[in-house]
């Protein structure tokens, strides 16, 4: 992969957006630097872009050799905003890579595959613009069927929304995963919500501009991180819903879809084979009971007249 990268004369940057990640950032930087810079020179830079951590995140990252930036110091003349999306957006300005890999900094079982697994498709497949990570580790190696998919917000909010409005995008197994690699020419063309909606808007925008053929997905095996509370997921969902509805409005989707899609798509996996499961869910409506003739007759609703 390194040879092919060098042949294409590509530069690759790794961006770790952070906010108080002192317990995990050290290992992430050490592993990526050691494996993907010293041993295999796949990455040209590792940058931590921070939203203003109050712990030792930046100190630790810098100690282990990452370039560290405060998001507010990048493009300082612009009105300051705060959020993960803001860090990602500013990284496009700050970093030099033709490909930028984004990896969340709270991953406890970090491994070099989190970067090279996402970079591979961009190096070998010129038509691919955006590579999304997903996680699926079978508990046993038998051929039993198991549900495969994302976290709670993905399954409860994003997947139903995509199924309704953008059925093709349901092919993305984990639309909200924070691990993805993108070509610069794509990143510079799309706008970024500064908060939780950034992953959702990326998918909608890339889909709108380039179609499904721009996407690739990489199985990154397993991701261990702290679970968020339901309240936090509520906030996240609100941000995502806001972004989604705004995009729908801009794309004219809300107005044109008089009849919504009725197919809800989820994934199941058998061994390493991922199958789409389609549920025809028709939220059909019954009229008020008093409009039903039999009911009216039984309860003598017409007699009183």
């Amino acid at each position: 992969m390194v040879e092919e990268k060098e042949r294409q004369n590509l530069k690759i940057s790794l961006c770790l957006p952070t906010l108080n990640e002192e317990s995990t950032i050290g290992k992430e930087v050490v592993l990526f630097r050691s494996e993907l810079m010293s041993r295999y020179p796949l990455l040209d830079e590792i940058a931590v872009i921070d939203s203003g951590s109050t712990d030792k995140t930046l100190e630790i990252a810098s100690n282990f050799g990452a370039d560290t930036y405060l998001a507010s110091d990048i493009l300082p003349d612009l009105e300051p905003k705060k959020g993960k999306g803001e860090n990602l957006w500013k990284s496009i300005y700050q970093l030099k890579g033709d490909i930028i890999v984004f990896v969340d900094a709270d991953i406890k079982n970090i491994h070099p595959r989190f970067a090279y697994g996402l970079i591979g498709p961009l190096i070998y497949r010129p038509e691919v613009q955006y590579v999304k990570g997903f996680y699926d580790r079978p508990l046993t190696l038998s051929n039993v069927t198991r549900p495969s998919g994302g976290g709670r917000v993905t399954e409860i909010l994003t997947r139903p929304l995509f199924s309704l409005f953008f059925p093709e995008l349901t092919a993305i197994i984990q639309p909200l995963s924070g691990e993805y690699a993108v070509r610069r020419n794509v990143l510079e063309e799309i706008s970024f919500p500064i908060g939780y909606g950034v992953e959702t808007s990326h998918l909608l925008d890339v889909y709108g501009k380039y179609g499904m053929q721009a996407f690739a997905q990489s199985d990154l095996d397993q991701r261990i991180h702290d679970n968020k509370s339901t309240r936090d997921l509520g906030k996240m969902s609100f941000g995502i819903l806001q972004t989604f509805l705004t995009r729908c409005k801009e794309m004219g989707v809300l107005d044109t879809h008089k009849d919504y899609e009725t197919v809800f798509r989820q994934f199941q996996a058998v061994s390493s084979d991922y199958q789409v499961v389609e549920h025809h869910i028709i939220e059909d409506e019954r009229p008020p009971m008093n409009t039903i003739a039999e009911y009216r007759e039984k309860f003598g609703l017409d007699k009183s007249k």
């Binding site: 290992k27 050490v30 592993l31 630097r33 050691s34 494996e35 010293s38 041993r39 282990f64 050799g65 079982n109 491994h111």
Partner: peptide
């Protein structure tokens, strides 16, 4: 240092 620590993390985990 980084090479050793990376080996330590990968092996130890």
């Amino acid at each position: 240092r980084d090479i050793l620590l990376a080996n330590l993390a990968i092996i130890g985990e």
